[in-house]
């Protein structure tokens, strides 16, 4: 069965192009447009991996990540922080809240796909 990936990002164009790449690689893709919906979708869909934007409406990406990693039911789901902010301090905060990988936009397709395969142990 195809592994399921949840993309939480408020930029529809980004969601569209990343979905296209992930589907081409054989993954099932679901998405959410803000932090609140992201948490709800995570509960409902139980994805194998989450790609999480930082600057999100309602609940920001750091908080979403922290909430997921504090919950015994979700903490094993790998989270890739996906952000257009490239400051070293942001990356540090990402690691601090328990993110498993940090990818900056614009991203190298090989880097994104490599991290996904690594975290899904494929």
């Amino acid at each position: 069965m195809a592994k399921k990936i949840l993309i939480i990002d408020d930029e529809p164009n980004i969601v569209m192009v990343v979905t296209s790449r992930l589907k081409a690689a054989g993954y099932e893709v679901v998405n959410a447009v803000d932090g609140k919906e992201g948490l709800e979708k995570a509960k409902k869909e139980m994805p194998d991996l989450i790609i999480l934007d930082l600057m999100l409406p309602k609940i920001d990406g750091y908080t979403v990540c922290r909430m997921l990693k504090f919950d015994a039911n979700f903490k094993q789901i790998p989270v890739i922080m996906f952000t257009a902010r490239a400051q070293a301090a942001d990356k540090q905060t990402g690691t601090h809240v328990g993110a498993d990988a940090y990818i900056t936009k614009p991203f190298e397709p090989q880097t994104l796909m490599g991290e996904i395969r690594r975290l899904l142990k494929e």
Binding site: I14, R85, A86, K105, P106
Partner: peptide, 21 residues
């Protein structure tokens, strides 16, 4: 500076990805 960085990178991400795909 942070906002400009974010605002410029986001559309560039989509453009780059469409070209790559």
């Amino acid at each position: 500076v942070n906002t400009v960085s974010h605002e410029l990178r986001t559309p560039l991400t989509t453009i780059r990805e469409v070209i790559a795909q």
